[in-house]
Amino acid sequence: MTCLPQKTDKALGLVIDLDTCVGCQACVTACKGWNDQGYGVPLSDQNPYGSEPSGTFLNRVHSYQVMPEAAAPMIVNFPRSCLHCADAPCVTVCPTGASYKRAEDGIVLVNEDACIGCGLCAWACPYGAREMDAAAGVMKKCTLCVDRIYNENLPEEDREPACVRTCPTGARHFGDLADPASAVSQLVAARGGYDLMPEQATRPTNKYLPPRKKDRPDQASLLAPLLDIKATGLAGWLDRVLGKLP
């Protein structure tokens, strides 16, 4: 189990559009809500109403400020969850085989019944995509909502991850990144989707779409005044303006 499949038939994953994400955190709680009662044990919270609350989440949204050399500073909201890497180090380190990558669709999962909670896979993941549940002592991670995307009890249109379904801006896309014809692959191609920390050699499946170019540089305005109002006065202006009417 712990060996990675040579090749997966599909590479299901997410494409996250940083140009569109407003940082609303909807995907964070939708993920928690679904997975709290879905795949595996609930996502527990410790000290939930106390001074130091803490809990297990499979998806977190950060916010960064980017300061270009010569343009206005930007804020980029940045969702972070498991990237379902092709070369997933979290899988190979696992001593129990609980952590595995599926050959059929590339989803990286934890078999919670086999997990001893050693935490090694979380150490191995560069992206912080795994969180050990403090109540159950097992490793939790994004399942790509396997219990939704193949769930025959759900209507066809709902067979997508909870976070994708809830994202109000449509910044999250789900699909097969191994299929170059898929909508997600085309989006990645069109918008220059990229990998996070390529130097970590994990070959993530999930891709991020960069913010589009923002804040047009100051260039000349195209609006030319009708005439010199100082010289011609309001009457002259009025003549010109109303003269435009048919």
């Binding site: 940083l18 130091e52 609350p53 803490s54 809990g55 297990t56 989440f57 977190r60 949204v61 950060h62 916010s63 960064y64 400020q65 980017v66 300061m67 270009p68 050399e69 343009a71 500073p73 930007m74 804020i75 980029v76 940045f78 972070r80 935490g119 979380a122 150490w123 992206y127 912080g128 969180e131 050990m132 403090a134 990229y194 990998d195 996070l196 920390m197 390529p198 130097e199 991020y208 960069p210 913010p211």
Partner: peptide, 30 residues
């Protein structure tokens, strides 16, 4: 942070807000 977010090419990247103000396994462990 530039490679972790892929935003490095746009300019200097800094933290604006944390993803959560509460504690978490990652913060404690890593």
């Amino acid at each position: 942070l530039g490679s972790a977010t892929g935003l490095g090419a746009l300019g200097q990247v800094e933290i604006f807000e944390p993803a959560h103000t509460a504690g978490s396994y990652l913060l404690r462990e890593m």
